Amino acid sequence: MTSTSPDVPVRRTPAELADRLIDIKRIYHEPDIERFPRARDVMDRFPEAERVQILSHQAIPGLYGNEGSAADWVRNKREVLVLGEKKSLAARRNERSSDWIAPSTANGCAMACSYCYVPRRKGYANPITVFANIEKITGYLERHAKRQGPKLVPNQCDPVDWIYDIGENSDCSADAMVSDNVRDLVGLFARIPNAKASFATKLVNRDLLDYDPRGGTRVRFSLMPEQTSRLVDVRTSKVADRIAAIDDFVAAGYEVHLNFSPVIVHENWLADWAELLEQVADGTNDRTKAQLAAEIIFLTHNEGLHDVNMLWHPRGEDLLWRPDLQQAKRSQNGQWNVRYKSPWKGRWVQQLTDLIDEKLPTCRVRYAF
């Protein structure tokens, strides 16, 4: 439990941050969702919220595919919550940030990063959906990890443990504000001997410091230069606050890595990154530095997202939509995206990795693209 002694600070997510992100006024829920204890818990958290029954969390009348609601982007993020059942459970091979992508216990997000590629199904804002059948999901993950046995061949994901990304379609720090699913996942991986959970986050939720991860969860704090973040990291924690939290999360028993993503190129970008890396070096202790690793992901954008962003946050597109620097490229899922031009991107990747070697030499780069 969090101490209330006057000598020990109470570690809580600042009320103003939680209030700014979440003020649930309407809960869309699938039929008979209250048969799940987790659904009842969530509803009890927001007793004043209107409850609206829907057939499926993937098809919400008035929200699903409604491009016209882009103007209500932030309001939907703040005021709408969805409760559903995760029916299809599968762990998908990844081999970049993790060995496996775990079945989602949530999707959508309370934050509003303007480069986010998560499907804009719920009002073109994708507010949080909580999957209430958490026991089925955690049971599946425990059995899946057991089937893998020991990790015999080290890889860039981890030299010892199988890594499961538990936040591919959401931000677990925000999810923890609306349900105990994240607490259950952290507890699960604290006891699984051969596996570790992993999630990237742009939110400092200090309530997670009261969990008991015992080294079984890797938190990847996403960082970018502050000036860029102010424009495109909408409704997130300040970059300085994320850096200030890193030592505390290590001390609480988490492994902490850095997620340099997305790297957004502009005329002054490399100088900005040099300043950011110096802030990390100055703001973390030796214990933290000894366990740091990073992944680097340069920006991928697409015309559809650009068009939607122009409806609600056009200023961010000054940085994100740069036809002079970008070229079209088909992604693995068959969609057309824009990425930085070759061979410029290759040179920029090398420049940034060289800068990390200079400014933050103990931080190994797990992968960069």
Rank of each mutant, 00 (worst) to 15 (best):
K87M: 14
E85P: 02
L209A: 07
A90Q: 15
D99Q: 07
C116D: 08
T138G: 12
D207M: 01
V153I: 15
R143L: 10
P127Y: 06
I128T: 10
T138P: 08
L203V: 11
V219F: 06
I128K: 06
L203S: 01
G187I: 02
R93N: 12
P119L: 13
A112D: 14
Y211R: 04
L185D: 04
Y211V: 02
R214Q: 11
C116K: 04
I128W: 00
C109I: 11
M177Q: 08
I137T: 11
M111E: 14
V118G: 09
Y211C: 11
A145I: 09
N205Y: 04
G139C: 07
P103F: 06
E168K: 10
R147P: 02
A110G: 15
R120A: 10
R121Y: 14
G187L: 03
C157D: 09
R206T: 13
D158I: 01
D158V: 04
L208Y: 01
N155Y: 06
A145W: 08
A132F: 03
Y117W: 15
I163R: 00
L89N: 08
A195H: 02
R96Y: 13
S222G: 11
G139L: 02
V160R: 13
V160D: 15
I166N: 04
Y124A: 08
P103K: 05
I166W: 01
E135I: 04
K202E: 08
V178A: 03
L203W: 09
V182Y: 00
T217D: 06
L203C: 00
W100H: 05
A176N: 07
Y164H: 07
N155W: 12
L223E: 01
V130R: 02
D171N: 09
A174L: 07
M111T: 13
P119T: 15
V178D: 00
L208G: 04
S222L: 07
A91V: 10
T201D: 04
L188S: 09
K146A: 15
P127F: 08
D171S: 03
C172Q: 14
A112Q: 09
R218E: 13
V160P: 02
